[in-house]
């Protein structure tokens, strides 16, 4: 269910997906944002109260200019949870959202119960530089994001609408999102998490698509070595968009971890 919330005394108008009931589960999307068709969220909502906000600057969420760095983003999520009356929650973060989820868990260890990081950004290994997603056109991006760039899913991702108005809308929305993402990822997606990751106390699960060509699976080792209570799972036949590519397996693994 799509909802709009006033957050922080009207500082932000937040668009969020709110579905299911049970233990809260906060989902932080990646740089591309929620796609509008995100079946794994519906699936997870069978067991959890899923809260998936659009980061300010994405979709209908306003106040992007107030979220300029990692601290601003974490304060925004804290405010959101405060206003929703949620004291502590499980958190899943994907890619850029993984970086922000890890920061959230490091800055306030009491707020995050369990943490799932899916192909998270946040570190930089000299030997394994992460390719520049901002300088890629759609087919190039798809080749980095998807295990099989020819799959219907990847094709859908790269399809450009033929209607000029739709094309313009799509282009403007995409620009808006990536502009906001650039605050966290440009030019190198490292905003100092390595200094703070040691604080993360929540049990943490790392999920990686085996053929992730954007943030290669070697980064799992880097996260595992810096987070105390951490284990790592790799999913076959999946790339960076693992939860879209292998939703059943993804949901099963995440559910087991959060319920376990």
């Amino acid at each position: 269910m799509r909802a709009q919330h006033q957050i922080g005394g009207g500082r932000w108008q937040v668009e969020l997906e709110l579905c299911g009931s049970g233990d809260p589960l906060l989902y932080l999307h990646g740089a591309g944002g929620l796609l509008g068709v995100d079946p794994f969220l519906a699936e997870l909502s069978k067991d959890f109260k899923v809260i998936a906000p659009h980061l300010p600057g994405y979709g209908e969420s306003t106040g992007g200019e107030l979220v300029e760095d990692v601290v601003d983003a974490c304060l925004f999520y804290h405010q959101l949870l405060d206003d929703l009356g949620i004291a502590s929650t499980n958190v899943i973060g994907h890619s850029m959202g993984g970086m922000l989820a890890a920061e959230l868990a490091a800055l306030d260890v009491h707020r995050v119960k369990k943490l799932v990081l899916v192909s998270p950004a946040g570190f930089w290994l000299e030997q394994h530089p992460i390719p520049d997603p901002f300088a890629m056109d759609l087919p190039e991006l798809a080749a980095h994001l998807f295990h099989d760039p020819k799959s219907p899913l990847a094709q859908m991702f790269t399809t450009i609408p033929s209607d000029p108005q739709q094309l313009a809308d799509m282009y403007v929305e995409r620009t808006k999102r990536l502009t906001q993402a650039s605050r966290f990822l440009w030019p190198i997606p490292d905003r100092g998490l390595k200094k703070r990751a040691w604080r993360i106390a929540a049990p943490t699960l790392l999920v990686w698509g085996e053929s992730d060509r954007l943030i290669p699976p070697v980064y799992a080792g880097e996260f595992a070595s810096r987070i105390r209570n951490c284990r790592s799972v790799t999913i076959k036949h999946a790339g960076h968009m693992v939860m879209y590519e292998q939703p059943e397996e993804f949901v099963r693994i995440v559910r087991d971890f959060l319920k376990g």
């Binding site: 930089w124 000299e126 530089p129 520049d132 030019p187 190198i188 490292d190």
Partner: peptide
Amino acid sequence: FAFNGKFTKLRY
């Protein structure tokens, strides 16, 4: 090359 320094970050 990319340079990920503490004070300077450059991708190209």
